[in-house]
Amino acid sequence: MRLLRDALIWFAAIAAASALAFWLGGYATDVYRKMLIWVALALSYNFLFGIAGQVAFSHFAFAGVGAYAIVIFAHQLGLPFGLAFILALALSAALAFVVALPSTRLEGFYLALATLAFSQLVLVVISEGGDLTGGTGGIANYRLPHVFDVTISGPWYTVVLVLLVASTLWMLRRLDRSAFGRACRAIRDNAVAAAAMGIDVRRIKVLAFTLTSTLAGLAGIAYAYIDNVINPPVFGLENIFLLLFMIIVGGAGSHIGAIIGAVFLYLAPFVLEPIVGHGFMVVFGVLVVLTILFQPSGLAGLVNRWPARRAT
């Protein structure tokens, strides 16, 4: 019975989010699509930062690896799309694993700085990659090819993005509620005690980093076909700060918080920009400091608190 109810909720949510794609148009579609990418990235980053407790600054770098890899494989090198897709995903995963092996040995914020250095290096490489990466100008003028004679375009591509978000959420929730998710949270809270409970701390850390970074790569692949253009700045430091802020404001460790935070901070500039101009980033900074000081469980904590109060 519960299974059926859950299935219905998932179906209804996916249907509603997809229907929106057909109803929106023009500029709104573009905003909606990018918001979906942000939500997908926020979900996997929340698992890495909020649940596994790893402050890593490489999430957008892996999205960049995915995006550049698919475009280079499928369009610069002309490989069949299916193969290019698998290669791009495998490259993201392999690179994530290689970065995770030494990085997860670092304590606390030193991980952040090592991954920050890594993502800056990725940026340097894609900016200096010559014709292969298109240099600082990036690559444009490619199109999503036919897959099994089907062309996905217009609102249907938005549906693909909705499915990306839904499957990311489904996977991460499932993992979170398993022994793996508990091991991740235990390491975040107290690594010494976690090891004493038989948890192989290194292994779990490497798994969590590799898995979430691969999901970032997947989101990057999807991003590459939104505007059919990729360039280096998107994958730089600015966006990783914003992603981190989304998780903190939404509520670190909560899937629903990641979604709320991503939607809220992504859409806020559209409302704030006419009022405070570019100053909305100041507003975000203040919001982050206030959240950490006064509402550490973020917006999700506010949402959760309400029914609890009613119950008691």
């Binding site: 022994a179 793996f180 508990r182 091991a183 038989g198 948890i199």
Partner: peptide, 9 residues
């Protein structure tokens, strides 16, 4: 978490 070693899949 204490059960970890009994259910690490």
């Amino acid at each position: 978490v204490g059960c970890h070693t009994r259910c690490s899949d």
